[in-house]
Amino acid sequence: MFPFCFEWAWDVGHIIFMGLLYMVLGAISLGLLYAFVMTWLKVTGRDKLFERLWIRFPITLW
């Protein structure tokens, strides 16, 4: 799973597979992080910052 595991090899298989995996995990983590941060902003009353960071998926993505 990690480059320090001894079956790791820098080959196409590992790069594509693990690359996609880490991208997906990254997307999930970022999403969660966003939700946590926004909650924290709102709860602690930083509504201004909250409004500015408020995004709407997926319209903003396209």
């Binding site: 997906v24 966003y34 926004m38 909650t39 709102k42 998926f57 997926p58």
Partner: peptide
């Protein structure tokens, strides 16, 4: 309120998760 807000926030970016879920 924390839970309510957190739920709201998650729901707002549900499309992201839907996209990731679709891919997976």
């Amino acid at each position: 309120p924390e839970i309510d807000i957190f739920g709201n926030n998650l729901h707002h970016i549900i499309a992201l998760f839907a996209a990731v879920g679709t891919f997976l």
